[in-house]
Design a protein around this nucleic acid. Structure first.
Lengths: 202, 202, 202, 202
DNA sequence: GATGAATGAGAATTCATTCAT
DNA sequence: GATGAATGAATTCTCATTCAT
């Protein structure tokens, strides 16, 4: 709907390949030559589409922001309630589904993203999301639970991958969709304690 | 009386400064020149103490491993029980206390650590810890809860820092020690569900 | 009309200059900076045309191999005879004529060439040539004569240069073409004894 | 008889090890650290015995010069004759016997030795030797034969080594002493033509 | 007779970037 | 829309050398 160049889209292919490589080796260690090579074009071609390497990064980050922004926009219209909180988690999880490379990408490039302008925008969005989940007058503990709750959605994929490498746990690894259910369950559980007084768990 | 290098321990000073810089800007973006400059020595001096840049990294990682290994060694002697699980979390939290730069360092350099040999050793240790927490015949969900539970210990510090930057939440930020209590509480809460059937939270 | 780089062929110019410098100071002591400076380009330009310093070396070696390979290819088609032997020497001498810098280059960089992969290819070629000169069932002595016979072609140039530096012998130094005749004569003489029994010269 | 430090002689051990390594990898590519490591001492220790790396080289070259100088001294006392010529070759061959590493060393480090002061001394000696072999009023061709004749002594060892690597010729490789006989025979043969008019060999 | 710590100079190599075509 | 050629700045790393102890 909002694509700029419907087809034959080199620009989009660059973003795709770049994201893959940034996710695999990190932003710093990925050179423009690698991106160009994998695309079968020259480095100079990248500069036709993006002004700098950082611009490519920004392009990727932006492409991920849409679903998060949708969730925020929706959430800001609603009155706070535990149900809202859960619904935000569900929408966030849905938005992230099928974006594993992007998730990995974010997970792996935190110092870079943070230092690179594009980072503050992204951080601001994540904080906005967690604010919506915290209700009025949250304690610090509430904030922590909200943030970890969202984190659980993303991190579950990586735990699955780590298990896959481990002979002991590799056996009964659930499939993609079951994994998402687990992530959601754990995330909701964590969020469930938000706003409740500590019940002496310690 | 005041020698240029207070206590001969250049090697240790290198590790310290390197960790700080790696944590701040990431491993890749930190050059040996920066490390040397901040120490007031030449680049070549670093090479007298470490064979490669990667060796410096390994040195840092190893210095963090001791407390984790202690926790593992202890845990492997015990019979499994929920109480053991909680005790492991407590020991882990205690081991991490006061090591904020190290924590940040790990959080920020995942792709590098992973690709750099030293990574697998570290990952193996973390997985051993989570295995101890899972009890016999864990489900995938149990594994996820165990992993996120440990993660909560580390991540809480960063959430605090993020809040500090945010005018809305900066006000009532708790102090270091209270933060650790929060982290522990949240972590134990998450771990509490390990081994229990899903109670229809979703 | 007078562009900075007369005939676009930077790659070839690099090979030329590199060979000259390698011949003069040796491969190890010649830095890429020297090569670049003498060409009026930057070091990085060299890397546009060659992947490594070693690749430049390989390029030079390969450029010398053609005439040798021609001689081998021709020789392998022929039946062995003393006449063949002499003809191989002549073809080799002809192939080397006018390649003094290359010859010097080889003479001076033996340890490097040997250790650098490109070396075994070259050595193999020289051995193939000597094999053609040895006839069937050669003795070790035959091999030695064959090898030294070829060596004589190359080495004569350097002896001439050494004489040039020596006041006593500098006077009646022959010119380039007469030098080649001498080399050929000596070489053929040495080869002449191949296959003949020792005549009690000792 | 002329050793300076009879026993426990680090200085001599340094020369030995250095020669070996220079012969194997070349002077430039051999670092003082390698030498020190193989000796089980520190780099700094080398500096106790030699002022510079170049001094180590000079030490090696000098240690080789003695037998050559003896041959020269003896030769300069004699009247020229073909018999003298042969005797010089024999003395040179004898002097070189059992010094394979040294020979290799010289063969491999020509550009360095030439550029390093020590080089001219050595070259002068070799030229003096060849002069003694040439008789009065030598032609350029005589000089070439004389030089190659000496070269044959040294080069035979390397040809043997090359054959050893070659499956086709490795079989009937003669032993050390027989190799020396071959070298001497070939050398004398080459020298035999000195002073005689070309006999239409071409 | 030797070491431990450090230096200064320089090496090869990589990279983001530019620009004429 | 893209390429080929090149650059400038930086990076990791190596090395001969020095010197206080």
């Amino acid at each position: 709907m909002t694509t700029q160049t419907p087809r034959g889209d080199t620009r989009a292919r660059i973003l795709d390949v770049a994201m893959e490589l940034f996710a695999e080796h990190g932003y710093e260690k990925t050179s423009l030559r690698e991106i160009a090579d994998r695309l079968g074009v020259t480095k100079a071609a990248l500069y036709y589409h993006f002004r700098t390497k950082e611009d490519i990064l920004a392009g990727i980050v932006d492409s991920m922001s849409a679903p998060i922004e949708d969730a925020i926009a929706w959430g800001e219209q609603q009155e706070y309630s535990p149900g809202l909180r859960d619904e935000i988690i569900r929408r966030f999880a849905e938005g992230m589904a099928g974006r594993q490379p992007l998730l990995r990408f974010f997970h792996e490039n935190q110092p870079t993203i943070r230092e690179l302008a594009v980072g503050s925008r992204f951080k601001e969005r994540m904080m906005a999301l967690t604010r919506l989940m915290q209700g009025p007058e949250p304690t610090f503990e509430d904030r922590v639970r909200a943030a970890i709750s969202l984190m659980a959605i993303n991190v579950t994929q990586f735990i699955a991958e780590a298990c896959a490498d481990d002979p002991a746990s590799a056996a009964q690894l659930p499939d993609e969709s079951e994994r998402r259910d687990v992530a959601l369950r754990v995330s909701l559980d964590i969020a469930d304690r938000i706003g409740k007084p500590a019940d002496g768990a310690q």
